[in-house]
């Protein structure tokens, strides 16, 4: 069985020293090993941005696509080969700005994939512009007077879009994050894990210390019931979206793959492409 070391490769990430993304990468590698995957059984599909590079830093199959489209690509991979574990990953700009439409619909569709958002509340690779996750009043190169748009709450959106697994974590909490990714991989359906991942270069507000002060860990509430959508929504609002842990899980709803008529358990990619002459004749007969 593969250990987390086997999910490492020899590529040095081009992230800044201290970037939260390093821990997220480590958590994915540990979670993959903990759930018993071999490197070739995992496909990491990532978007564009600093965090989008992650697919190249993990020893697994990986596709680094185009900005905002990690999710549709990942869903295509899963449809083609449901035997693979598919993780989609990218930044908050990738998933909640340019790719927001896909995020909502991937949640609704509920294919069995895990989406890990590396949320740093800013655009890093383009050197510091506002993100939908930036706080109101947040000053960046593109909002010199402070952002005048309201901050997007991906957790609330996910719940209202019909998400079956919603979690949030903090890159410094490797233990919690690893456990949540494992749970997300095991969840039969779409799992969204939003991870606070401080940008040490361009975000001087949402720093490690700031998160430590503001995060509300759900462990504080021993009675919290993650299967209750109403209390989940309330808790997100009460904590102003700063809660971490497993926020909501619906284990009743089947995954998209399991609801498609005729869709087989075996990977479609392994199926023979040929068509029997009899089947063909039947199709043609409809046009006579």
């Amino acid at each position: 069985m593969a250990t987390f070391k086997e999910f490492r490769n020899n590529v040095k990430p081009n992230w800044c020293p201290g970037c939260g993304d390093f821990s997220i990468q480590a958590a994915i590698q540990r979670a993959a090993a903990n759930v018993g995957l071999e490197p070739e059984e995992l496909a990491v599909i990532s978007g564009i941005g600093c965090s989008g590079r992650i697919s190249g830093y993990i020893n697994a199959y990986g596709l680094h696509g185009i900005h905002g489209r990690a999710l549709p690509i990942a869903q295509g991979v899963k449809l083609a080969n449901r035997e693979l574990t598919v993780i989609a990953s990218g930044g908050d700009g990738d998933g909640f700005a340019i790719g927001m439409g896909h995020t909502v619909h991937a949640i609704r569709r509920n294919l069995n994939i895990t989406y890990i958002v590396m949320d740093n509340q800013i655009y890093g690779l383009t050197k510091g512009q506002t993100s939908p996750r930036s706080a109101e009043g947040f000053k960046t190169k593109s909002t010199p007077e402070g952002s005048i748009e309201s901050t997007l709450s991906p957790l609330e959106i996910a719940l209202s879009a019909g998400a079956t697994f919603v979690a949030q974590s903090f890159s410094s909490d490797l233990k919690q994050l690893t456990a949540l990714i494992e749970a997300g991989i095991k969840h039969e359906g779409f799992s969204l894990i939003n991870v606070f991942s401080p940008c040490v270069t361009f975000n001087k507000i949402n720093t490690y210390d700031w998160f430590k002060e503001n995060i509300v860990n759900l462990e504080q509430f021993p009675d919290y019931d993650p299967t209750n959508r109403v209390t989940a929504m309330n808790k997100i609002m009460e904590t102003n979206g700063m809660l971490t842990g497993l926020i909501y899980q619906n284990t009743v709803r089947k995954s998209y793959e399991d609801m498609i008529t005729g869709f087989r358990q075996e990977a479609l990619a392994k199926q023979d492409l040929s068509l029997s002459e009899e089947h063909f004749a039947k199709l043609v007969a409809e046009f006579k």
């Binding site: 496909a43 599909i45 596709l63 696509g65 185009i66 489209r69 999710l71 549709p72 690509i73 990942a74 869903q75 295509g76 991979v77 899963k78 449809l79 083609a80 080969n81 693979l84 439409g101 896909h102 909502v104 619909h105 990977a267 479609l268 990619a269 392994k270």
Partner: peptide
Amino acid sequence: EDEIAAVTMAIGANYAGV
């Protein structure tokens, strides 16, 4: 949800062999 998703989903599925 749109044609961008349509084409990128097709790319993902082709990459994975279908």
